[in-house]
Amino acid sequence: MQGYKTIQSTHLFATGLGPIRDAFPNKHIPVSTIHEFICSNTESTSSTNGFVSALTASLMKNGGACIWISSSMKAFPSAMPLFGMEPHRVIFVHATKEKDILWAAEEALKSNGLAAVIAETKELSFTASRRLQLAVEKSQVTGFLIRQQPRILTPNVCSARWAISPVASELPADMPGVGFPRWKVALLKVRNGKTGEWIIEWDGTSFKTITPVFRESKFLHRKTG
């Protein structure tokens, strides 16, 4: 694959994602690359927003800023501190056209003044994904693409394809009320890694793996570089 290099030493320090990290090559969730999140409905988008916020927060720890490009502008900044992210260091770009979102994402990924770029888009062609990947390789910025109800899932060069959906929370001893947000995190594709599904909880400061179900997919979407 053009421009694809082995994963650098930089990686995400999000705690509690141990089993998921193991699915990636070198047991690191790679940064300076593109991650793609598939959302099938609004509920899974809201879960993905939370998960991505938590991941981005770990990238923004050194005082960095990030940019959030979307057409809907529904992400609520007041929720971000609950995932460790400082919303005032997020720049929101409201682009209505898909083309503009991808353009802005590419421009943002090219500039190395950012910690992360989050873009909400619907479709992503192979060419578009490669443009983003090439931009990322120069600038070492990490990109998260939140894909809202994509029509068709075509191959692209993103290093991982995630799908995050909410699952019922649990409280100890059947206490009343709603517990910590809990998600089913599925890795549908990992470049040079293994796919699988896990139940993950965010306890306000770190991730916690509830069920380390490591499932080798029957149809292994394994890609080799």
Binding site: V90, I91, V93, A95, A108, S111
Partner: peptide, 18 residues
Amino acid sequence: ELIDRIAGRIGENRIYRF
């Protein structure tokens, strides 16, 4: 500079920070 470029294409009033 990135914000300037985005503002030039998408519009000054479409970039926010909260």
